[in-house]
Amino acid sequence: MKKNSWFVTIATTLGFAFLYIPIISLIIFSFNKSKLVTVWAGFSTKWYAKLLNDPQILGAAWISLKIAFLSASLALILGTLGALVLVRFRRFHGKSLLSGMITAPLVMPDVIIGLSLLLLFVGMEAMFGWPAGRGLTTIVIAHTTFCMAYVAVVVQSRLVDMDESLEEAALDLGAKPTRVFFDITLPVIAPALVSGWLLSFTLSLDDLVIASFVSGPGASTLPMVIFSKVRLGVSPDINALATIIIVVVAIGVVIASTQMKPKKVS
């Protein structure tokens, strides 16, 4: 371990300042009395009260939470299956296709995913009559598709690190593959499953572009409502909303990192 030079230390400090100044400013001005977001006029929590009485925001938040829960859970199942198959099975039909497709949504621009899925849904509706119209279902399908990529990557790296002799021993003792999976593989990869699910949940909660394409009337997600408000200008109740999200996330991340540290399952 060599000491970092002063140049690297200063650059890192500035980098962290760059990452955190916007977040800190969001939080500070959410407690501002004035409607002008950037001029301090005294402490107030009135924007929080306003936020909690805004039916449009609350309704959209509820829709977004439902979508995020469903997509994260579906993505967890599909992404874990994909990762298991890719890591554990040597060769099968479509392996290179699967491995190519599973990570591609990670980098694919949102506008392309959104447009292509919308055109698919419109085409499917014309051909099979399903999905009838667009809304919650279509958003969940779209979010599942890009979230499963994240789950697959997280689970894959955990599976690669996993000691296979445990599964080996269970098989030798005559356990069925499903039993091996539920009694051994699953508990070992559980931390990866938790972080994969949480990651999917936040990504779904955060998505504006894809949801805008595949959503229909009556299914406005929280980012869609925020975006239309923000386009009209800054408003302190959005700062209040941001502060609530940041605090919840920060608590979650701190708890997760302290919970996962002590027991290092190899």
Partner: peptide
Amino acid sequence: TSFLLRVYA
């Protein structure tokens, strides 16, 4: 944390 809100900041 929300990407949209960080851009908004």
